[in-house]
């Protein structure tokens, strides 16, 4: 599904290298987790994959289903099936959550040459999916993320993911700042979307999310590189001993 090879990324504005040769392959239908200390480049990886400005790819490649995505516009990557649940979802004052969702869904459908959803169809689907994420009608009407609590913002990200039905979902610290109940809701939302045709890259600091979203593979990222890859037990190791041991071991 997603194949990243020797990816080197620096900042456009200043001479700073952030990703220093990332290699990562996420197979179709699999859930991979990335853990790693703050500042190791996890968010940068997710931004570069989704096409945010300000980064410069100096070497390497990233392919989605065999297609190089690094030269594509962000909206083209989205239409190709890439989704990023943001670590810090953005507020858009005055734009109803529902309006935002429908505009997004139809933009992607249009880009793929599919028929747009009618208002009625759309409403029906949203209500269903919102319900399972405990998102009420009020939250759907409110402006996108404005005045949302941390948990509401993250649930809203998952709702967007559920509506857009992407192939490759990247979740950037979707668990941070959530209490146990909120985290369970989010995890259930993600698990409901697990599918043989859909892959996940779950970025997290904590083992506890991975108790709920069981990963197939766990990677440790440090200083712009994947330094260790293993099974779910690797997350437990981090939980118990921190990163120090692992980093010392690979240094």
């Amino acid at each position: 599904m997603l194949e990243i090879k020797n990816l080197h990324v620096g900042l456009e504005e200043e001479d700073k290298q952030i990703l220093k040769g990332v290699n990562l392959t996420v197979e179709t239908g699999k859930v991979h987790a990335i853990m790693g200390p703050n500042g190791s480049g996890k968010s940068t990886l997710s931004y570069v994959l989704s096409g945010k400005d300000g980064y410069e790819v100096t070497d390497g490649s990233a392919e989605l289903e065999g297609v190089d995505i690094l030269d594509m516009e962000p909206e083209e990557r989205a239409a190709a099936g890439l989704f990023l649940a943001f670590q810090y979802p953005v507020e858009i004052p005055g734009v109803g959550n529902m309006t935002f969702l429908r505009t997004a869904v139809n933009a992607q459908r249009k880009a793929r040459g599919e028929e747009e959803l009618s208002a009625a169809e759309f409403l029906k689907v949203v209500r269903e999916k919102a319900k399972s994420l405990k998102i009420d009608a009020d939250m759907l009407k409110r402006p996108v993320n404005v005045g949302f609590s941390g948990g509401e913002k993250k649930r809203n990200e998952i709702l967007q993911m559920a509506m857009l039905e992407p192939k490759m979902c990247i979740l950037d610290e979707t668990d941070s700042g959530l209490d146990v109940d909120a985290m369970k809701l989010v995890a259930e939302g993600v698990n409901a979307l697990r599918d043989a045709g859909r892959s996940f890259l779950v970025i997290t600091h904590y083992q506890r999310l991975l108790d709920h979203i069981k990963p197939d593979v766990v990677h440790i990222m440090a200083d712009g590189k994947i330094v260790k890859t293993g099974g779910p037990e690797l997350a437990l190791e981090v939980e118990n001993n921190g990163y120090a041991d692992i980093l010392a071991e690979v240094a």
Binding site: V90, I92, A104
Partner: peptide, 28 residues
């Protein structure tokens, strides 16, 4: 805000749609 535009584009809107959406929100 560039962050707002990127957020919209990551969800599939092109740049002009994103601007229109943000500006209409501003004018609501």
């Amino acid at each position: 805000d560039d962050e707002q535009l990127f957020y919209c584009r990551q969800r599939g809107m092109d740049e002009e749609e994103a601007v229109a959406l943000v500006v209409n929100g501003f004018c609501k």
